[in-house]
Structures are given as structure tokens and as C-alpha cells.
Design a protein around this nucleic acid. Structure first.
Length: 772
DNA sequence: GACCTGCTGCGGTGTG
């Protein structure tokens, strides 16, 4: 393991606390009773900033005390005003997870009691009776999800002014989880709608966040249109030392001829019923199993401790949880390895979280990104990861889960397996791009760089939803009033009046029927809009698919599996880290009943490849063209990097970005996913068979010379028309309400959100002359 | 070759 300085250096706070003196009497008394000797750095900094009023972002690592940093001064602000007895909540706290609301409720209960301020939980699992009582006597602090806030506005629009008219501030927790997403856009819109409904010009917003790559984007996210008015409180307290290792492994070559194996891999499951393929391609030995050397090393270093293992996909979570459990059984040890992902039942996941947080026994949670979020699991001793991971910011979140105790380092191990070299290995595989991506990601983390969220999208699906919600909330309004609330003052700033009218026309078409105009010029819900807005599934803006429940004989629900999965009685699956046989299946009730068994295969979940940021791709090229060997690589990883660099030079990639493979070409432009996708569409528009795959664009049936000629023409031409390129894309319907829009609107939104047409000539130039 | 998040109100019946 290699020591390296983690992002975040120690900062010594001022010894004398004027912040403490500024707090209200009951708040100070509560602090005394906690036995705190001093306020944490972020709290010292937050108190004067929040007492001064205005919008504020508090940024500090997990467990630095951000929640108290916000609530100590906010309570100080509201306490003098509570005696008047005016109805209405004083503080609205919004966060993305029900589990986090429950955590925060536990955490704030004592403080709020000491101040004699009511505290309400408000989400789908809270009994309707408690919510009714909070609605009847709105006072104090309410902890709510965006969806429950949406439901309140839609169902009780006329009540909004009474509930929220007296708000002193809104707290947005886990701000980074909202930036650039559909759900974040909905939340921004909700906060504007609350202000408008109450006739308020401005209600202070306080954003809490652990990881923020770009502070300007975070400020814009908290107050769209006025980022400069948002003050920033950034604490760097508590950065631990980092012990880091990247380990490399070679797995045995796949069966079948090289090209066949590569095709099968590229196109997913082998297709057995094609007449031209008499024998299906045999799956590789590891296709459904763990890499055995990785599993044994994990078992050796993780057992007996408290760890998180990020396995990369739900299927790999199941595979490794199952394999590590088996290794524990072989060693006659009690099991300490548990699966944790989004398809497991809440009770199963909570059992793992509770064991990590409260139980002294050694425990490793094998997880997807579920445990990156702010759920309280205490401190862990080490973090391990299989594969390069999706992004730098994700790696940073994972790292923050360990090394939280004073004097304890953060420990991170990354395991990368690449296919052993053989005559049939594809050039892209010879470059060892998984290992190179892991190195690039780690290097950028050590440089403290982090992907900025992708902002600036039109989000027309969510705008459609917000039009329906606003009409339902108000009972009908003039189109120009809707535009002013949602686009003029609200977050849909890049939607002009003309584009808004085009959207209204699209969703008013008879085949959509979401809205219609009343004779006196009011925007009303159409028949389909009424049905949507009345439904239980209306309040969330993100898309979800239907799934089967997995139930053990006797009735306990383990979790869910995708509906399109081919499941039949007699088949076996690995689920929740254990092996099961399917006993029966009820398609109407969507239930799979299972019983324990000895051997089984892991279930398949959906998914795809989302690619990397431009900066990661550029760092990958620097890594391959360099000669230095990072100190954090083990012998296996060093060998893989040597192989990748030899291949890089062998293909002449220091002087070109094109590798000719038989009658095809592989193009490696070292750019991120959006530029790669746009380049492929540009080539497609010129009648070349171009497909983005991984970090490359593959061009079928085209010589390097012909491809160069086309790229020379692209480099010398104006950028292609983004809308026309978007029209060629296969999947324009991506979000929940996209299906109601016209092709023209979908192409326009895709062009803005996913493509970078303006960059295409430059990308073509750099492919032709990489050194330039 | 990926991951995650969320959800109302009412009417019927049963119980103390």
C-alpha cells in the first residue's frame, strides 16, 4: 500500500468562539448538555453566515457536523418569532432519501425538543395520520422528500400559502445529488412554486453538500439565475491520510475464435437461434463467476474487519457476496459478507446498515452505489472496489466512507482484471483500458479534480410534468403566467416563450391530450392529463420499470428482479448473496417464490455504459503515452500497464488515433462520451457504419485511408447540425414524459443534452494529428 | 460495460 495525501488538509479553527455566543439561549444549553468542548469548523463558519441571512452553501466532508451547522443558527433565527403563534412551518428541510429523513429525525429530535420547536417527518412511509396532524397545525420544522412536497402542492394547492407562508428558510441536504438531474430540476421548480404560491419574493435557501466539483454550478443549482448571491462556507477539516493500491490481474482467455468472442461480448448474450450460427458461442469461464484470485485476496484482507466493497453492478454484488460467504463457510467462520443494492428489500438492506453502524462484529457490505449516499453506517476500516469505477466524484464519495476517526487513514484497494494476451485479442483490449482508466481516475482524484455535473439541459420531460403539476395546483392558469413561474423565475431558464408555446402545442395534441385551453384562455388539464395527475405514480419525475417481487416460501420478501427477465420454475438464482431455486411464479401478482438450494446463477439486471468525462479520457492518453510508473500499482498492475503501453506504441497511437483491424477501423480519439457519441453520429450521417463502443468508435468496412479522407473533410467543414444528428439517434425517448412530445422537440432536447456538435471539427483534427 | 431515488386519499370493514 502506498501513502498519499487525500483531498482536504487540516485547518485549525479559532480557539475563541464568538459563534457560540451568538446562538440563542436554549440552543447553547443543548450544546452544553451534549458535552461538546468546541464547535466543529464548519459550525463556527456557518453560524455568522446563516445568522446574516441570504442563501448559503455549506460544504464539508461527511460526518463533519453539517446538519447542526445549519440548524443551530436557523433555530436561533426562528425562536424569537415562534411565540406569535402564526400558522405555517418555519423551516422546510428537503432531502433525496427517506432513510436520510429518518436518520436526521433521530439526530434533531433532542435539539428541537430542547428548543420546544415541533419536528415533523414527512414521506411515503410516515403514517397518513401524522401528516394530517402536521397539515392541520403547521409549525416548526418539517423534513420532507421532493415527491411528498410535490404531492402536497398538487393535492392541496389552496393550502400552500397557509402551510409555507411563514417559512424562514429552506434547507436542501445532499445538494450534489440533485445538481444536473431531472429530480434536481423538479426540486428547483418546487421551491419557486412555493415562493410564488405564498407571494414571497425570496425565502433563504441553505444547501448542504459533501462533494462539489464546481462551486459556481452548485450556487446556480441552489438559486437559479442568481449564483453570485449565494455565499459559500467551505470547511476542509478532517482530511485523512490515504493508503491506496491498484491491483492488476489477468484472467484466462475466452473460448471461441477471437472475433466471434468479441462480437458476442459487444452484442450482449449470444443469439442461439440465428441460422448462420450453428453453435452458440460458449460463455467465457468467468462469465457468471467471480475472478477467483480477486475473491481470495479480498477474503484475506477484508475478513475480521469492517469494510465496504463496491462491486460495480448488482450482478457482481451477488456474485462476490456469494463467493465470499462460501469462502467464510469453507474456513468454518461465521459469515460476515452481505449484499446491498437497490433491488434488495428495504428490511434486508437496513439489517446490513444497522450491523455496520451498531454491531461490533466484523462486517463487509458488498454494495453498488447505494452506500455512496449519506446514509449513516458509521466508520469503516477500508474500502475496496472492483473495476475502475464510474467516475472520479464517485471514487471520492467512496473514499469518504473510511478514515473518519482521528488518526485513522483512508484505505482504498482497486482490483482490475484484464483478459490474458493471446493472438485474437482486440486492440482496444490490448491497451488495458480498464487499468488505464483506474490510473487516470486515481490521478485526477489526487489532483483534487472532480467531474462537474452536466447542466444546461432543456429537461422537457420534467417541464411537461411541472406544467401539469402547476395546472393541478392552481386549478388552471394563463399560459404566460405558467411560463413566468416555471421559466422566467423558475429553473427552466433556457426555455424561451416560443419553445414553451411549442411544448404546450405538442402536449395539447389529441394524441397527447395532457392539456387544453378553456374558452376564457386558461390552461387546463386534458383527459389524459387528469388521469396522470390523479395517479399515485405522478409525483416522481424519474422513470422506473415494473419488477417481480422475490419471496421465500413462507412469505418473506427479499427484493425485486426485472420483469423482462426470463424466469421459470426449476431455474436457480443467486439473490441477497444466497442460492435459491424458483418454486413457483405468478405473472399476474408479479411474484417469484423461491427456496434455498445449493448451486445457482446470478440474475441479470438491466444497464448500459455511460462513458467517461473528457478529462478522464485525456488523462488515459497521458498515462499510456507516459513512462512513469505510479507508486500505488502492485506487480500485476505494473505488468498490465507495461503491456498497454507496448500496445499503444505498437499500434503507432502516439502518432495516430486510428487502428486498422482487417477491413474495419477502431478510432481512439481520447474524448469523453458526449463527443464520442457525436463523432459516431457524424460518421453515420456520412454513410459510414460507425458505432461507439467503450472508449472507441468502431467503423466497419472502411479502410484507414478512406476514413482519413472523410475526417479531413469533417475537420475543414462547419460543425454538423446537432438537430439533424439527433434525428439519427436510436433512442430519443429517454425520460418519463418524453413519450408525449413531438420528434422535433425530442431531437432538440437530445442535441442540447447529449451531443457536442460544435466540437466535431476539432475532434476530427485531433484524430488526424494527435500531437497538434 | 451502471447505478440510484419516490408516491395520495378515500371508502370499506373490523375492533374496543
Amino acid at each position: 500500500m502506498t501513502g498519499a495525501r487525500a483531498p482536504g488538509a487540516h485547518v485549525v479553527p479559532d480557539a475563541a468562539s464568538t459563534a457560540f455566543e451568538a446562538l440563542a439561549e436554549p440552543v447553547r444549553r443543548w450544546i452544553w448538555r451534549q458535552g461538546w468542548t468546541a464547535l466543529r469548523e464548519v459550525q463556527e463558519m456557518a453560524v455568522p453566515a446563516i445568522l446574516a441571512g441570504g442563501d448559503v452553501i455549506l460544504s464539508a466532508r461527511t460526518a463533519a457536523g453539517k446538519t447542526e451547522a445549519a440548524f443551530l443558527p436557523l433555530l436561533t433565527r426562528v425562536l424569537p418569532r415562534l411565540d406569535g403563534g402564526r400558522p405555517g412551518f418555519a423551516i422546510l428541510y428537503v432531502c433525496p432519501l427517506k432513510a436520510l429523513i429518518n436518520d436526521q429525525h433521530r439526530r434533531l429530535e433532542g435539539l428541537l425538543q430542547a428548543c420546544d420547536v415541533p419536528l415533523h417527518r414527512w414521506h411515503g412511509d410516515v403514517p397518513a395520520d401524522a401528516k394530517r396532524k402536521a397539515r392541520e397545525r403547521p409549525q416548526g420544522v418539517v423534513l420532507i422528500t421532493p415527491e411528498s412536497l410535490e404531492a402536497t402542492l398538487v393535492r392541496r394547492g389552496p393550502d400552500a400559502a397557509r402551510l409555507f407562508g411563514a417559512l424562514d428558510a429552506v434547507v436542501v441536504d445532499e445538494l450534489h445529488a440533485f445538481v444536473g438531474t431531472e429530480r434536481g430540476r423538479q426540486l428547483q421548480s418546487l421551491l419557486t412554486r412555493v415562493e410564488v404560491a405564498c407571494g414571497r419574493d425570496h425565502v433563504d435557501r441553505v444547501g448542504l453538500s459533501a462533494t462539489l466539483g464546481d462551486m459556481r454550478l452548485a450556487r446556480e443549482a441552489l438559486r437559479p439565475g442568481a449564483p453570485d448571491s449565494v455565499r459559500l462556507v467551505e470547511s476542509r477539516e478532517g482530511g485523512a491520510d490515504l493508503l491506496l493500491q491498484v491491483r492488476g490481474y489477468e484472467r484466462p482467455p475466452r473460448n471461441g475464435t477471437g472475433s466471434e468472442a468479441a462480437d458476442a461480448r459487444r452484442e450482449g448474450a449470444p443469439d442461439a437461434d440465428g441460422p448462420e450460427r450453428a453453435e452458440p458461442v460458449k460463455p467465457a469461464p468467468d462469465a457468471n463467476g467471480a475472478d477467483e484470485p480477486i475473491a481470495s485476496h479480498l477474503f484475506e484482507v477484508l475478513r475480521g474487519r469492517r469494510n465496504l466493497l463496491f462491486a460495480g453492478s448488482r450482478q457482481r454484488v451477488e456474485v462476490y457476496a456469494d463467493r465470499l460467504r462460501a469462502l467464510a463457510e469453507d474456513a468454518r467462520l461465521p459469515n460476515e459478507f452481505f449484499a446491498h443494492h437497490g433491488n434488495l428489500a428495504r428490511a434486508e438492506r437496513e439489517a446490513v446498515e444497522t450491523r455496520l453502524r451498531e454491531d461490533g462484529r466484523p462486517t463487509t457490505a458488498v454494495a453498488t452505489t447505494t452506500l455512496e449516499l449519506g446514509i449513516d453506517i458509521g466508520d469503516v476500516e477500508s474500502v475496496a472496489q472492483i473495476g475502475p469505477g464510474p467516475s472520479v466524484s464517485s471514487l471520492r464519495q467512496r473514499l469518504g466512507r473510511s478514515g473518519r476517526r482521528p488518526g485513522m487513514p483512508s484505505v482504498l484497494r482497486i482490483y482490475v482484471a484484464e483478459e490474458a494476451a493471446g493472438p485474437t485479442l482486440h486492440p482496444a483490449d490490448r491497451l488495458r483500458l480498464d487499468l488505464v482508466q483506474a490510473v487516470a481516475t486515481v490521478d485526477l482524484l489526487l489532483e483534487r479534480w472532480c467531474e462537474p455535473p452536466r447542466v444546461g439541459g432543456l429537461h422537457l420531460s420534467t417541464l411537461t410534468h411541472q406544467v401539469l403539476a402547476l395546472v393541478a395546483q392552481t386549478g388552471g392558469l394563463r399560459p404566460d403566467a405558467a411560463w413566468r413561474t416555471l421559466c422566467g423565475r423558475g429553473p427552466f431558464r433556457n426555455v424561451s416563450r416560443d419553445l414553451f408555446v411549442e411544448l404546450l402545442r405538442a402536449i395539447a395534441r389529441p394524441e397527447a391530450a395532457l392539456v387544453e385551453m378553456s374558452p376564457d384562455g386558461l390552461l387546463m388539464l386534458g383527459p389524459a392529463g387528469e388521469r396522470l395527475a390523479e395517479g399515485h405514480q405522478f409525483y416522481a419525475v424519474f422513470q422506473t420499470d415494473e419488477e417481480y417481487r422475490v419471496m421465500v416460501v413462507g412469505g418473506k420478501v427479499l427484493g425485486t428482479v426485472p420483469l423482462d427477465l426470463t424466469l421459470a420454475p426449476g431455474q436457480t438464482i443467486i439473490f441477497n448473496g444466497r442460492r435459491w431455486r424458483i418454486e413457483s411464479l405468478d405473472a399476474r401478482a408479479k411474484v417469484v417464490v423461491v427456496a434455498p438450494t445449493k448451486s445457482a446463477l446470478p440474475p441479470r439486471f438491466g444497464g448500459g455504459w455511460s462513458g467517461v468525462h473528457d478529462a478522464v479520457a485525456a488523462a488515459m492518453r497521458r498515462c499510456l503515452s507516459g513512462t512513469g510508473m505510479p507508486a500505488y500499482l502492485d506487480a500485476g498492475a505494473r505488468a498490465l500497464l507495461d503491456q498497454g503501453r507496448a500496445a499503444f506504441l505498437g499500434y503507432g497511437l502516439d502518432g495516430t488515433c486510428i487502428v486498422e483491424v482487417g477491413r474495419d477501423c477502431t478510432v481512439l480519439p481520447w474524448v469523453g462520451a458526449a463527443k464520442l457519441e457525436t463523432l459516431a453520429l457524424t460518421l453515420l450521417a456520412r454513410n459510414l457504419q460507425a458505432t461507439p463502443y467503450g472508449h472507441a468508435v468502431e467503423v466497419r468496412g472502411c479502410s484507414a485511408g478512406d476514413l482519413r479522407a472523410v475526417l479531413t473533410d469533417i475537420a475543414g467543414s462547419p460543425p454538423p447540425d446537432a438537430g439533424a444528428l439527433a434525428g439519427l439517434a436510436a433512442k430519443p425517448v429517454r425520460e418519463k414524459y418524453d413519450g408525449y412530445l413531438t420528434d422535433a422537440l425530442l431531437a432538440r432536447s437530445l442535441a442540447v443534452e447529449r451531443l457536442e456538435a460544435d466540437a466535431v471539427p476539432d475532434v476530427a483534427r485531433r484524430i488526424l494529428e494527435p500531437g497538434a
